[in-house]
């Protein structure tokens, strides 16, 4: 069911290298449209960033960034955390993703998603994380998601 382009196939062969992967992500499609960038990573976790550009606004009266754009950021971050933990690229699909919105984020702020893959079975990976705007102790949203491996 997956059509894997040659650039990704190469990543698959070489092992998962997150910086290279994001050169690809922000070069086409939805990742390009919303401007996803790699920020940081550590053991089992990945942080991505997205500038709160005017075209990502969901509530124009108050300049609030749309939760849809935030879900895109989080979905990509959660999947990347999984590949990063595995150290290789493999096909996955999102089974479900939940966001709890703690406070709004505004246009002009930089949004960061920081997700950790905290449990992996043969079939399912469990991910949790937050969205913040620079201060991790004042998150915008809490995130929980599950992914299916080898769909």
């Amino acid at each position: 069911m997956t059509l894997i382009p040659p650039e990704v196939l190469k990543l698959l062969k070489d092992g998962f290298e997150i910086r290279k992967f994001f050169e690809l992500v922000h070069s086409f499609g939805h990742g390009k449209a919303i401007g996803l960038e790699f920020s940081d990573c550590g053991e089992g976790w990945v942080e991505l960033e997205m500038e709160g550009r005017p075209e990502l606004v969901g509530v124009p009266e108050e300049n609030i960034i749309s939760s849809g754009a935030m879900i895109s950021l989080v979905d990509t971050c959660a999947g990347s955390a999984l590949w990063h933990k595995l150290g290789k690229f493999e096909p996955i699909v999102t089974v479900d993703l939940r966001l709890d919105y703690l406070r709004p984020a505004f246009a002009g702020e930089t949004l960061y998603a920081r997700c950790e893959c905290y449990k992996m079975t043969r079939s399912i990976a469990f991910v949790r994380g937050i969205v913040h705007t620079g201060e991790r102790d004042r998150p915008v949203a809490h995130v929980a998601g599950t992914f299916m491996r080898h769909p």
């Binding site: 939805h30 919303i34 849809g68």
Partner: peptide, 21 residues
């Protein structure tokens, strides 16, 4: 193009945006 995810498929985030709106 702006709703494209992995090649051949829509991006989950774009679908979520549609559902939310």
């Amino acid at each position: 193009e702006a709703v494209m995810g992995r090649p051949g498929f829509l991006h989950g985030g774009a679908i979520a945006g549609l559902l939310e709106l």
